[in-house]
Design a protein around this nucleic acid. Structure first.
Lengths: 343, 343
DNA sequence: CTGAAAGCGCTTACAG
DNA sequence: CTGAAAGCGCTTACAG
């Protein structure tokens, strides 16, 4: 395969103009079917490859969408965002866009440096995947380019955002525990750490309220300090029968702690998580949890960004995508017995 | 920030030509320092962004390097390749290239479909990260474009490849076990599954040979079938005192099995792994293992691909990058006692 | 149905 | 030190 064949080369061989070749290869009107076929065939034979850079330059669009992920979300076991990116890229592909991943280095985030791809005009829109610093959010807003937030939102900015339905996810899974006969249910998570921990807590709380179950302060168990570093759990004197953990990793840690203390799960305690990530299957027994609908989130974000790239005025607001409960073996049904003693 | 400022716009404002603006912004000779400054400043004020697409078209290069990862390597807990990509992208960035990740869908791999980015001439070179099918390897070879294999190599093709030093990694860690007094050492892995399992086995074997330790067939314990699906371990009648596992995940599985059988680690058995991935810290106790030098591998691969993009004749052959042992708590020192009974 | 002309935004090679 | 001309590979709008 020679690599430098252009439309002009094809045109010359057939004694036509490059305009005709262009039309033929793009399947446009104005060329006889016969000639079209001949051109396409010759293009194939000559190993012609369409040069999109030329087209890009012509119509001033790069056909690239940049997916920015803050570096801190890319650590071990954080394959969640990679999966989201993968889904995004695939959907963009169908629309003939490229999804370009950009892992935002910590320094760039602090110094408010936009990706080089922006300064070099190689991008038509941004999907911000995972919450960056406040300053960076403002920066992204200030450049006039289509922008969608994914998996977080910002109170103060009017940016289209696609998020997991944290609230109803936690609500659903707490309801499930109550259906199984649990009444003493704790929530595990630092309420002041992230908005998703907070929203999940509120979903849990709503479920309690609807079932007229009193929220006990000592049943709100912190899992990390305000910097996000995990801390030892301080379990209350009187233990609940079930724990709603704000994420699978914390459920994993909690189960280890309980098992170390000699308890069995789910016999002694039921535990549920959120995310359905790798930790959900690392626990013994495996975890009942809420699975995030990655494909739906990706699809929605791509739809938004594409429409915004077409006509930049459109706004979609904040959209929450519902997840679904994955039932495994970390929850025990409490048969009528209202409460129990720990032996 | 207006988005459509061009060199011409800047030129007109200053009553100079766009050639002069181009020279000034690229810091080339032929413009007075004074004028250069003025131009740069105005460019800033006007929110000028350099249009690399135009440059790309001019010199027929996209400045993109495509990193292809077969889909099956991107599952949960497979953040290894993401980290490699991250490192690659960062190093390419320093050289003003873009690293474009492309997750190769299974169907495309089967149907031998190259990434669209190739057909659209938006890429100057490929880094193949992770071993694809034989057919796909041949396909990649057939397109005349700079190509580097990363983390695998192919016997039959003369392609530059950067790999982990599986052989010496396993050799080193087996030596370490022997230093700790172990003589009865098993290897865990299906020798016919992948070349890295095989190479690691051979490193283990070399260590035995050098210490005049007889290789016992029943000490080669398979971990997966030929399709790569994990199977139950068949442990030999007489158990060894130490296990060299072909990867951390398998070490994790083995430790679970042994612990389920009532053994303690490292008191009853020593276990070592390879990779230092997430599984190495999920085991209790944490795993002594071989860490792959991701940055060095990435650096080498990028160096190769860049030089090949400059002048395509250069060849580097196969380069193995050494890892290093990470000492944790899964190995026990055997004080002189040659062998032991299991109580 | 076919094509000459102009232009996308930049750079290179050359002339002054 | 400065700039007019030509060209990268394509497409659009228009003329025939």
């Amino acid at each position: 395969m020679k690599s430098n064949v252009t439309m002009k080369d094809i045109a010359q061989k057939l004694n036509v103009s490059s305009v005709t070749v262009s039309k033929a290869l793009n399947d446009k009107d104005g060329v006889s079917e016969e000639l079209k076929e001949k051109i396409k065939q010759l293009a194939d034979e000559m190993g012609y490859r369409y040069n999109t850079l030329a087209k890009s330059m012509k119509d001033g669009r790069s056909y690239n969408v940049c997916v920015i992920i803050p570096e801190r979300f890319t650590g071990m076991a954080q394959s969640f965002y990679l999966k989201v990116y993968q889904s995004i890229a695939q959907i963009l592909e169908e629309k003939s866009y490229y999804g370009i991943i950009h892992i935002l280095p910590k320094e760039d985030e602090e110094q408010l440096k936009l990706p080089r791809i922006y300064h070099e005009r190689r991008v038509d829109g941004f999907i911000m995947l995972g919450q960056p610093s406040k300053g960076y959010i403002d920066l992204m807003q200030s450049v006039e380019m289509p922008l969608v937030f994914l998996d977080f939102y910002d109170e103060n900015n009017h940016v289209d955002a696609v998020i997991t339905d944290n609230f109803y996810g936690a609500y659903d899974i707490t309801n499930y525990l109550i259906q199984q006969g649990h009444r003493d249910i704790a929530y595990v998570g630092n309420l002041f750490s992230t908005s998703s921990i907070q929203d999940r807590f509120l979903g849990y709380y709503k479920s309690l309220l609807e079932h007229k179950i009193h929220l006990r302060q000592e049943y709100i168990i912190s899992d990390r300090d305000d910097e996000g570093v995990f801390i030892d759990f301080e379990l209350p004197e009187k233990l609940p029968t079930a724990f709603v953990c704000n994420c699978d990793q914390v459920a994993h840690l909690l189960m280890e702690r309980l098992q170390r203390d000699g308890y069995r799960i789910p016999e002694d305690f039921s535990v549920v998580g959120f995310d359905n990530d790798i930790y959900a299957k690392l626990t013994k027994p495996e975890l009942t949890t809420v699975e995030v609908d990655i494909d739906e989130m990706a699809k929605t974000a791509v739809k938004f960004i594409c429409e915004k790239m077409e006509k930049s005025e459109v706004m979609f607001g904040r959209v929450a995508v519902k997840g679904k409960i994955i039932y495994r073996d970390s929850v025990r049904e409490l048969n009528d017995s209202k409460s129990r003693d720990i032996s």
